[in-house]
Computed example of a mutant assay.
Amino acid sequence: MYADFDNYLGLEFLVDYWYDEGTGVASSLLSKFNEQDWIDLKEKCKLKSDEWKVRCAEVLDLASHPASTEVLIDFLGSESDEVVLAAADSLRGKNTVQLSSEVIERLWGISEKGSPPVQVVLRDLFGRLGLKLE
């Protein structure tokens, strides 16, 4: 199932289609993952494009498998602010999240220069972590 998920996220989508239909299809594929698929995702996602990672992060928020949180935390180490923000947004829906001080500092930096919607996302995540955005 990982191969199907990987191929699907690599397709070209119009933005509206991705959010209207594509996220549902991708989430459905995730719901069929077995343990090996989760292992493959954790190992192979690091080599994917930023666009692929953003799409992946956008659908991992509802996945209950512990690997989904691990992948999102890994995405926070990306050089791409877009990937980091997509991961941070999805992490808001996870129950238990622990972030390193380096990641928290990076998120603070993004929030300082971010737009109001970016600040809302990060403020909510920081609130879930017991931190305050100043």
Rank of each mutant, 00 (worst) to 15 (best):
L131K: 15
S115L: 12
D81R: 13
L14A: 14
R128D: 10
D81E: 09
E43F: 03
C45L: 10
E82Q: 12
L60N: 06
E58H: 07
E51W: 02
V121P: 08
D50T: 04
E43K: 15
G109D: 13
L62G: 14
E134G: 11
R128Q: 10
R123E: 15
L129M: 11
V71F: 00
E70F: 12
F33K: 02
V59L: 11
E79N: 14
L122N: 06
I110W: 14
D37G: 05
E112V: 15
S100H: 06
R55W: 02
G114Q: 07
C45K: 08
D4Q: 14
K94E: 01
C45D: 10
L133D: 10
V59Q: 01
F13M: 06
L107F: 04
K42V: 10
V25Q: 05
R106H: 05
S78Y: 03
F126Y: 09
L14G: 05
I39T: 13
D81C: 07
G77Q: 09
F75R: 03
T23V: 15
M1L: 10
I39P: 02
K42H: 11
G22K: 01
T23I: 04
A86L: 03
K48H: 00
S28R: 15
S115Y: 04
S64K: 14
L9P: 05
S101M: 08
S27D: 03
H65A: 00
E43L: 01
W38H: 01
E51Y: 02
D6Q: 13
Q119Y: 07
P117W: 03
L125D: 00
S27G: 09
G10Q: 05
Q119M: 08
D37T: 09
G130F: 09
N95I: 03
P117Y: 00
W108P: 05
K48R: 14
L9R: 09
V121R: 06
D6R: 12
Q119F: 03
G77P: 01
V121A: 12
S28K: 11
I73M: 12
E58P: 14
S49Q: 09
S64T: 07
S28A: 12
L14C: 06
D50P: 00
V121Q: 12
E82C: 12
V54S: 06
V83E: 08
V59F: 04
A3F: 12
E51D: 11
L99W: 04
V121W: 01
E105Y: 08
D4M: 00
L125G: 03
V71Q: 11
S111W: 10
D20F: 13
S78K: 09
